[in-house]
Simulated assay, not measured.
Amino acid sequence: MRQQLVQEVETTGSSLLQLLSSFSEEQINTRPFEGSWTAGQVAEHITKAGNCGIVYGNVAPSDRQPDEKVTAIKELFLNFDIQMQSPEMVLPTQDSHQKEALLQEVRQIWEKLVHAAQTVPLEDTCLDFELPGFGPFTRLEWIQFINIHTKRHIHQLEKIKARLQTA
């Protein structure tokens, strides 16, 4: 289970960095259409949501399978037909973003996530925060959530990139 998790996280991080690298400095801060985030804002949101502090927070032994909620997380967050509202604490700012600084921040967040996937006891239940509607997650589920949530935003970044190339 751990080896597969680490591989999935590494693959997602690599895809994210490759895609972000393909944006020009100007495109990072260009809004593809009214009401959309810029690529820089999406990356900022990913770094805020991807901070794996929750994984290192307070935990308790779990009384269920550590991956029990992963399917539900995937079904919700990889359903690109539904629009979601981001919690205020992970909303991006309106600031201009520097491409290299964003890439560095994403690399650092992803290194922490890979390290967590490699080292923490995955079966423990995290107690410091619950995603509304899901209840408490295990460390494995939080790592998977961050990974799956990022896949959702990779899809969004691909749409932004395509829109900017045709503009």
Rank of each mutant, 00 (worst) to 15 (best):
L103Q: 12
L102Q: 05
T125N: 08
R107M: 15
D124W: 01
Q98Y: 07
C126Y: 02
L102R: 06
K99Y: 13
Q98G: 04
E100A: 14
S96D: 11
L113T: 05
T119L: 09
D95K: 02
L127K: 12
D124Q: 03
L91G: 06
A101D: 12
I109G: 04
A116N: 00
T93K: 06
S96M: 01
K99G: 13
M89Q: 11
T93S: 15
C126V: 10
C126Q: 00
C126G: 03
L102M: 13
E123F: 12
A116L: 06
D124F: 03
M89D: 10
L113G: 07
V90G: 06
Q94W: 03
R107Q: 15
E88H: 06
A116D: 02
V114H: 08
L127G: 14
A116C: 05
L122Q: 01
E123A: 15
K112S: 11
T125I: 14
Q108H: 10
H97Y: 13
A116R: 00
H97D: 08
T93N: 12
M89K: 02
L122D: 02
Q118K: 03
A117H: 02
E111Y: 10
E88A: 14
L127C: 13
R107C: 12
S86N: 08
S86V: 09
E100Q: 10
S96P: 04
E105W: 01
S86I: 07
Q98T: 05
L127Y: 13
M89N: 07
C126W: 00
V114K: 03
S86E: 08
L91I: 07
S86W: 04
Q98S: 07
P92D: 11
E88Y: 12
P92N: 15
S96F: 11
I109Q: 06
T119Y: 14
P121W: 02
I109K: 03
L122G: 01
V120G: 09
E88D: 14
Q118F: 04
A101K: 04
Q94Y: 05
S86D: 02
A101Q: 08
E88L: 13
W110D: 00
L102E: 08
V106G: 06
P121E: 04
K112D: 08
T125W: 00
L103S: 11
D95W: 05
Q94D: 10
E88M: 12
S96Q: 11
Q94R: 00
S96T: 11
T119S: 13
Q118V: 02
V106N: 04
I109R: 01
A117W: 02
L91D: 08
M89C: 07
L122H: 01
A116Y: 02
I109V: 10
D95E: 11
T119H: 15
C126N: 01
Q94N: 05
T119A: 11
A117N: 00
S86R: 03
Q94L: 10
E105K: 01
K99W: 13
K112M: 09
K99Q: 09
